[in-house]
């Protein structure tokens, strides 16, 4: 693995809810190497989005708070950093792309103004230089006739074009890390294929690290180098993308892979993980997956299961990992 550019260690995030302070992200650790794509996979409520927002301290405070842990970018600690310092990093060294590009683009300003603003804020260059840079990045994301598109407002773009413009804005300052939170989920599949291709080629050219948050295992298989699977606020397994799909070590990962309808034969019943994920204020004791796990034993319910390191830079949070042989993707 390349030298880590982004390291998250023992991250805890809490939210104030009707049930008091509730920990939605609990002891999450991972790192992303230079030029690497890490997929952060989980279902809704797994804490994957909160984790990705916490990296840039973008969770709303209140009701949220980072209750512990450390987030380091190129060795610099981000937790507890002052807001002005964070603003220097946001959009410059670390950039974000969201699911709904309308949330990252301001409807009241043109695409050009918004990209120029980011460039000028971080580079302090002239208007003309910023404009040239904006044209350059729009060209990069394959927006046709970029110079004339500078004056367009976000709503004048189609969904796919908006997402590409949002990526262009994120790339404007050559970030070292790109955090992409479900960037293709709201897009049609043919447009999703374009955006994935684009991200792949941009990464090859510029070598930025990507933290790719998604629930879609197909997209993970397409784009990611390594994968971290989250369940109920915790990471349950990390592995390279090939290892994870071929020989999952955690029953939840197996369940997710088996649940992909593409892999089920027609007429046969689809594999489904029984039950639903727990609410963060009523986490099961022991392994949080045990109520839904087909391999659970009494011992799984008793105490917290640590994340264990396996050979080949893999980690898994299952106490039966040695005994079980789980099925991967066909």
């Amino acid at each position: 693995m390349a030298a880590p550019i982004l390291e998250v260690e023992d991250l805890g995030v809490e939210f104030l809810t009707d049930h008091g302070w509730v920990r939605v992200v609990d002891g999450v650790s991972f790192s992303v190497g230079e030029g690497e794509t890490l997929g952060l996979v989980g279902e809704s409520g797994s804490g994957k989005t909160v984790t990705s927002l916490s990296v840039m301290q973008l969770i709303p405070v209140p009701p949220g708070r980072i209750s512990g842990g450390s987030i380091r970018f190129a060795g610099r600690e981000l937790v507890g950093m002052s807001e002005p310092q964070l603003e220097d990093i946001r959009g410059d060294d670390i950039a974000m792309v969201f699911q709904e590009s309308m949330t990252s683009l301001n409807p009241a300003f043109t695409i050009g103004e918004q990209i120029c603003e980011v460039v000028r804020r971080h580079r302090g260059c002239s208007r003309r230089e910023a404009r040239d840079r904006a044209v350059e990045v729009l060209e990069l994301v394959q927006i046709p006739d970029p110079r004339s598109r500078l004056g367009a407002f976000p709503h004048e773009f189609s969904g796919g074009m908006r997402q590409r413009a949002a990526i262009a804005m994120a790339l404007a300052c050559d970030p070292k890390v790109l955090i992409a939170d479900e960037p293709t989920t709201a897009l049609d599949v043919t447009v999703q294929a374009q955006v994935l291709d684009l991200l792949r080629s941009l990464q090859q050219r510029f070598g930025m690290a990507i933290l790719f948050v998604t629930h879609n295992l197909g997209v993970v298989a397409d784009l990611c180098d390594r994968v971290a699977v989250m369940y109920a606020g915790r990471i349950v397994e990390t592995a390279t993308v090939f290892d994870l799909f071929e020989s999952p070590q955690h029953p939840y990962t197996e369940g997710l892979l088996q649940a992909m309808p593409q892999l089920g034969e027609r007429g046969k019943r689809l594999a489904a993980i029984p039950g639903t994920p727990p609410m963060p204020w009523q986490m099961p004791t022991g392994c949080r997956f045990h109520p839904r796990c087909p391999y659970a034993e009494t011992a799984c319910t008793e105490q917290d299961i640590p994340l264990r390191a396996l050979a080949g830079d893999r980690h898994v949070r299952c106490r039966r990992v040695e005994e079980l042989t789980l099925e991967g993707a066909q």
Binding site: V189, T190, Q192, A193, L196, N216, L217, G218, V219, V220, A221, D222, V241, F242, F245, E246, L257, M260, Q262, L263, A329, Q330
Partner: peptide, 8 residues
Amino acid sequence: AVPIPNPR
């Protein structure tokens, strides 16, 4: 365009 959930 539909990505197949198997990297190979």
